Computed example of a mutant assay.
Amino acid sequence: MGFLMCGFAKRAILDAKVVAGYAHPLRTVRHLLSGKVVLTFTIKDSKQKIEQICQRVKQGESCAIVLTGDACFSEKELLQKIPCDFEIIPGISSIQVAAARCGVSLDKAHVLTLHESGERELLEQKLREVVDSIKRSKPVLLLPRPYDLMPNEIASLLISFGAPKHTTVRVYENLTLENETQTQATLASLPRKTYSDLTVMVINV
């Protein structure tokens, strides 16, 4: 998604001495990382690595954390781990791209993310609300939770909660990347396979 990066984000990366992030976001900006100190973190060690980054900031170093998720949506939990002052530079999210692919107006859609920690029961309650939107003919844009609440299980849960089996669904994987794919089906006929963790579901369109 590097070619959709806004100019402010590119400048922040170029000006930073230290650039950090998950492996995939760092790969998308690898052409900007020459001469940088690059810190790669995982979900498990992100809190520890971010604390190290903030120590560098307090010592006067310029740092940038690169995300491919929407910083105020799917990555909001990561932001809560940052114990120092920071600026958010927004970009173009996969939700926006999926909406554009389908011609869906975001103000008319039910937009939600399951890309968060927390009790599974709370996430399933969100899916019950999705069923209500489906019954009201409202389009739904949804980010699954890697890797335990992905498209096949979401489709099964929606049906069990009362969504019609013939409800249409599009699953976009790796949007804007070279390996982007789209699967069109119904909730009942969605192919059973391992979907990418970079997935957006568009339902009822």
Results as ranks from 00 to 15, higher is better:
Arg27Lys: 14
Lys44Phe: 03
Leu142Pro: 03
Glu77Leu: 14
Ser93Cys: 05
Met201Leu: 15
Phe73Tyr: 09
Gly7Met: 15
Leu190Asn: 06
Phe73Gln: 03
Asp15Lys: 14
Ile92Thr: 11
Arg192Asp: 14
Gln55Leu: 09
Leu143Asp: 07
Pro90Lys: 00
Glu153Ala: 10
Arg128Val: 00
Tyr22Met: 15
Val130Pro: 03
Arg30Ile: 05
Leu4Gly: 03
Lys47Glu: 09
Leu33Lys: 09
Ile95Pro: 02
Phe8Val: 15
Ile203Asn: 07
Gly21Tyr: 03
Lys10Asn: 06
Pro151His: 12
Gly91Val: 12
Phe8Ile: 14
Leu122Phe: 06
Leu79Tyr: 05
Ala20Cys: 11
Ser189Leu: 13
Thr199Val: 08
Leu14Arg: 13
Ala99Cys: 06
Asp197His: 09
Ala185Glu: 05
Pro25Asp: 11
Ser189Trp: 04
Ser156Leu: 14
Glu75Val: 00
His110Ala: 14
Ala109Lys: 01
Thr183Ala: 14
Leu177Pro: 02
Ile82Gln: 10
Gly69Glu: 06
Leu122Met: 10
Arg27Cys: 02
Gly69Asn: 11
Pro164Ala: 02
Ser156Arg: 15
Cys54Arg: 01
Asp45Arg: 08
Leu67Ser: 07
Ile92Gln: 12
Leu198Ile: 06
Thr183Cys: 12
Glu77His: 09
His115Val: 10
Gln80Lys: 10
Ser196His: 03
Ile53Ala: 01
Ser160Lys: 13
Leu33Met: 11
Ala71Tyr: 01
Glu75Asn: 12
Lys49Asn: 06
Lys165Phe: 04
Lys108Arg: 15
Lys81Pro: 01
Thr42Pro: 04
Gln96Thr: 06
Ala99Gln: 00
Lys108Glu: 09
Leu198Ala: 07
Thr42Trp: 03
Asn179Cys: 04
Lys17His: 11
His24Leu: 14
Ile154Gly: 06
Leu141Gln: 10
Asp132Thr: 11
Gly21Ile: 09
Ala100Lys: 11
Arg120Ser: 09
Pro191Gly: 11
Ile50Tyr: 00
Ala71Glu: 02
Lys49Trp: 03
Leu114Ala: 06
Val111Ala: 10
Ser133Cys: 12
Gly2Cys: 01
Ile89Thr: 06
Glu129Arg: 14
Ala100Ile: 06
Met201Thr: 04
Val66His: 01
Asn179Ser: 06
Lys58Ala: 05
Gly162Met: 02
Val111Gly: 06
Phe73Asp: 03
Gln52Glu: 15
Pro151Val: 14
Val111Ile: 14
Phe41Tyr: 15
Thr40Leu: 13
Ala188Leu: 12
Arg56Phe: 05
Ile43Phe: 04
Phe41Ser: 02
Ile154Glu: 07
Glu178Thr: 03
Ser93Pro: 02
Val19Met: 05
Leu33Tyr: 07
Glu124Lys: 11
Ala185Tyr: 03
Ala99Ser: 07
Ala64Thr: 04
Thr68Glu: 14
Lys138Met: 15
Leu106Met: 13
Pro139Ala: 15
Leu187Pro: 01
Thr167Glu: 01
Gln125Asp: 10
Phe161Asn: 03
Ile95Tyr: 02
Gly162Lys: 02
Asp197Leu: 15
Ser46Lys: 11
Leu112Phe: 05
Glu77Asp: 11
Ile50Gln: 00
Lys36Tyr: 02
Arg11Cys: 13
Phe41Thr: 02
Glu178Lys: 13
Arg136Gln: 13
Gln55Asp: 05
Arg120Ile: 10
Asp85Phe: 05
Val37Phe: 08
Glu121Asn: 13
Val97His: 07
Ser93Glu: 01
Tyr22Pro: 04
Ala188Cys: 08
Val104Phe: 00
